[in-house]
Design a protein around this nucleic acid. Structure first.
Length: 411
RNA sequence: GCGGGUGUCGCCAAGUGGUUAAGGCCCCGGUUUGUGGUACCGGUACUCGUGGGUUCAAGUCCCAUCAUCCGCCCCA
């Protein structure tokens, strides 16, 4: 028996209503804020990710599905910001009047050990905004995420906020971090030793118990809590908070929120649920002012976020499948075939029993699946009539078939 | 990549070395040639993830392997 590949899941009909709901709400919320949908390829040149996402990240180092074709290295997208940025540059979207606001949905691929809330193929909904450096843009994005989650009916979510500063202040912070951690270098875990060289900011993200103990140290706490960001970055961060307050969006500041993607600067945020187990981030995002330029475009400020749809789905209640408008009960399968076709052409959902089973069995099926039963038995056929039985109100009327069809077309 | 749990029908499950592998849901048929989900009766696993081994005897014990779940790491 061939099984679905490890870490992939079938989205079955019983769950599809939830997925339609998530997609429909995303479309509504995004277009209400003038974000336009974009669809980019599911695979891209490997270089796009190694340069865009950053080669100090786990995503690029060990989680990419990469394959060669005609001496080209291609990779199944592990996230979609790099792809959207590529499309933005390639299609000359910098010529559009800024800000350019885009949203997307689709599958992403990461080669990881599957776990609750973590799959190798998973789906994201995300937004990207280009060409606006104002903190308003950051807040518009965060607000969009919060509005969307609210629209889905999700409560008990926490927004966490941090600022990573700009290139300049980040470099000086990195230098400071290295200076402080130098003493503890032998005690740090293996991963952190690598992080020390490549990106010491990510040491703060380490969950290793021993490293956690080291973080308790006074000088380190002082450094973590110090406002290393420069005046301009601080001003930006304060404005973001002010606008969030204006909107009544609650958030908590988390100085250890660093994020594993290299492209972020200034504002970063996550939205978490405590009903999710250890993979508790439902949304993650931030500002990435350097990425467009790094990928060959003009220097363009940008902000965005992505949400994991499987994680959202697991927080949503199950939805009942929509009922059929009609279920035809009949012993004459030929007449039924024709009638079903006519009703479907008029735009209604119809089904019927293919095997011409007994009346009681067919009625049973109608009760389970439809709003109305259409009875087309010997009596009706003889008089060219049809009986419409409303299964909810428990009322029924018999009328000429012509009249029934005419009635359908009228609605 | 590392640690732990679990694999018996489509789903939930009993079974703890000894004849023919409970039960429930769903599905199918009947009681009932045309009007309400009830009730009652009947049907659906040549076999317990797979391969070895131990034993007179294995779903039950051992080993391996695969799958899956949970945690670490990382992220959505």
């Amino acid at each position: 028996m061939i099984q679905a590949p490890k870490g992939t899941k079938d989205i079955l009909p019983k769950d599809i209503e939830t997925w339609h709901f998530m997609e429909k709400m995303a479309e509504e919320v995004c277009s209400s804020a003038n974000f336009l949908e974009i669809r980019t390829p599911t695979f891209e040149a490997t270089q796009l990710f190694s340069r865009g996402v950053g080669d100090s990240t786990d995503i690029v180092n060990k989680e990419m599905y990469t394959f060669e074709k005609n001496e080209r290295s291609l990779t199944l997208r592990p996230e979609n910001t790099a792809g959207v940025v590529r499309a933005y540059i390639e299609n000359g979207m910098s010529r559009l009047s800024p800000p350019v606001k885009l949203w997307y949905k689709g599958p992403m691929f990461r080669y990881e050990r599957p776990q609750a809330g973590r799959q190798r193929q998973f789906h994201q909904i995300g937004v990207e905004m280009f060409g606006e450096s104002s903190p308003l843009a950051d807040v518009e994005c965060i607000n969009l995420a919060v509005s969307y989650l609210k629209k889905l009916g999700l409560n008990d979510l926490v927004v966490e906020l941090n600022s990573l500063g700009c290139k300049e202040c980040r470099e000086s912070f990195k230098t400071n971090l290295r200076a402080v951690f130098e003493k503890y270098l032998p005690e740090l875990c293996e991963d952190c030793k690598v992080r020390y060289e490549k990106n010491p900011l990510r040491i703060l993200d380490c969950k290793n118990e021993n490293c956690g103990k080291i973080f308790q140290n006074d000088t380190i706490q002082k450094l973590i809590n110090s406002d290393f960001i420069c005046g301009e970055c601080d001003e930006h961060y304060i404005s973001v908070q002010k606008y969030l307050d204006d909107l009544g969006i609650k958030y908590s500041k988390n100085k250890q929120l660093v994020r594993g993607l290299d492209y972020y600067n200034r504002t970063v945020f996550e939205i978490k649920s405590y009903n999710l187990g250890s993979q508790n981030a439902v949304c993650g995002g931030g500002r990435y002012d350097g990425l467009v330029e790094m990928l060959g475009g003009e220097s363009t400020p940008a902000v965005g976020w992505a949400m994991g749809m499987e994680r959202l789905a697991s927080l949503l209640p199950e939805r009942e499948p929509e009922r059929l408008d009609y279920f035809i009960i009949s012993t004459d399968t030929e007449k039924t075939l024709i009638l079903a076709n006519e009703i479907r052409s008029a735009g209604y959902k119809v089904d019927y029993d293919f095997r011409g089973r007994k009346f009681a069995k067919q009625l049973d099926k109608a009760i389970k699946t439809a709003k109305n039963a259409l009875i087309l038995g010997e009596d009706e056929i003889a008089k060219d009539e049809i009986t419409v039985k409303n299964l909810i109100k428990s009322e029924q009327t018999t009328l000429k078939k012509e009249a029934f069809i005419k009635e359908l077309l009228k609605k």
